[in-house]
């Protein structure tokens, strides 16, 4: 039996938005520690890894580890039926094929129940062609700062953030640098990752030459995180 109650559905809504941008369905692993997910997009270029600790729920009960195959769009539709300050309860039987979701208004005068069918997810989905890539962004980090530059068909653009300065929107930028690095990525994916921005005031980008980019957003005050991994564009 899995049962978890969350006092505010907002985090779950934002989290599902941030996941659905990359994947259609995923296996959500439920354990006594909380809920986690690791899934690649269909082209195997990016990966999303999410963890929502049991502290994000009260109570949180998980008698046996479960893997729930969830169609993210479907869950998103159900979540849209709740108000932001609704209390949400998730329930699943150990050998069931349904996830029950209950929303209750804080004063208890309204309750709605949904039963979502779980799916068997084929983890080894075949790759689709990587035919339609958007433009590339090159990220260059030096001791002076962080620079994003894009070369388009008809125009070029670049943005630079200085180590101790402030970005365009006034937010602080801090850089922890071992070695300078320059990497190129598909902008399309970075745009997908920004879907997680409402979950956190701060985003952390981790780069190292010739390795995937890691983009991390913390959830709440130690409640968990969502991380995206993105394969770089490289010389053949």
């Amino acid at each position: 039996m899995f049962e978890a109650r969350m006092s505010d559905t907002t985090v779950m809504k934002r989290l599902m938005d941030a996941i659905t941008t990359l994947i259609d369905d995923g296996s959500f692993d439920i354990s006594s520690k909380g809920i986690s997910l690791q899934a690649m997009d269909s082209s195997h270029v990016a990966l999303v890894a999410m963890c929502l600790r049991n502290e994000a729920f009260d109570p949180f009960r998980c008698d046996r580890n479960l893997s729930l195959g969830i169609q993210c769009k479907q869950m998103g539709k159900i979540l849209k039926c709740s108000a932001n300050n609704d209390v949400m309860t998730l329930k699943a039987e150990d050998d069931g094929d349904v996830l029950n979701m209950v929303f209750e208004s804080p004063n208890g005068d309204r309750m709605s129940e949904f039963a979502m069918k779980l799916t068997d997810i084929d983890i080894e989905q075949s790759c689709r062609d990587l035919s339609n890539f958007g433009e590339s962004v090159t990220i260059c980090v030096t001791k002076d700062g962080l620079k994003f530059s894009v070369k388009g068909d008809s125009s070029n653009a670049s943005m630079k953030f200085s180590q101790n300065g402030a970005g365009d929107d006034g937010n602080d930028v801090s850089i922890d640098l071992n070695d300078p690095c320059t990497l190129t990525f598909a902008v399309k994916y970075l745009n997908h990752f920004t879907k997680a921005a409402p979950l956190s005031e701060r985003v952390t980008l981790s780069l190292s030459n010739d390795t995937p980019l890691v983009v991390e957003y913390k959830i709440g005050d130690g409640l968990g995180h969502i991380r995206y991994y993105l394969a770089p564009k490289m010389e053949e």
Binding site: H44, V45, L47, T211, Y229
Partner: peptide, 14 residues
């Protein structure tokens, strides 16, 4: 020119 690499080149998901 640079080509998009696959994440599978770096690691495999569980």
């Amino acid at each position: 020119p640079k080509q998009q690499s696959s994440l599978l080149k770096f690691f495999k998901p569980k």
